[in-house]
């Protein structure tokens, strides 16, 4: 699939996962790359950008298996962005599906 297209959807994926639970970077990357073929390295720049935009906050938490990990948690603003993007996404998908199946509301 087109790389640009995937990158656009990545933001929604990250926001959705964080709505369910706080995650550390590897967890997010893993959850996404399980489902979508992407270069995993491209998720970290996105996380950093969205953190700077105030959609997430980060905190360090001890782990059982090694050094503390950086966790990402959704802010109020992030939740709003997630809801808006989700609506847009379903609207978009429905529109594309209509076009693909050749359905037209006007007919």
């Amino acid at each position: 699939m087109n790389i640009q297209f995937k990158k656009g959807v990545l933001e929604l994926c990250v926001l959705s996962i964080l709505t369910r639970k706080d995650c550390y970077g590897y967890e997010l990357v893993n959850d996404i790359s399980k489902n979508i073929a992407i270069s995993e390295g491209t998720i970290y720049p996105l996380l950093r950008r969205l953190t700077k935009e105030g959609l997430f906050k980060t905190y360090l938490k001890e782990s059982n298996e090694g050094p503390p990990r950086k966790y990402y948690t959704l802010t109020e603003e992030g939740l709003k962005a997630k809801n808006q993007l989700t609506t847009e996404w379903f609207c978009f998908v429905e529109g594309v599906n209509n076009v693909i199946r050749g359905e037209d509301d006007n007919e």
């Binding site: 550390y24 970077g25 590897y26 990357v29 893993n30 790359s33 270069s39 995993e40 390295g41 491209t42 970290y44 298996e65 090694g66 050094p67 990990r69 950086k70």
Partner: peptide, 22 residues
């Protein structure tokens, strides 16, 4: 951190680097 968690999950450096991209 990505490397260290990846290793804890049983991945090799090569595998991790490959999936990270250039």
């Amino acid at each position: 951190e990505h490397f260290s968690v990846g290793k804890e999950n049983g991945k090799t450096e090569d595998e991790i680097i490959k999936s990270l991209g250039s």
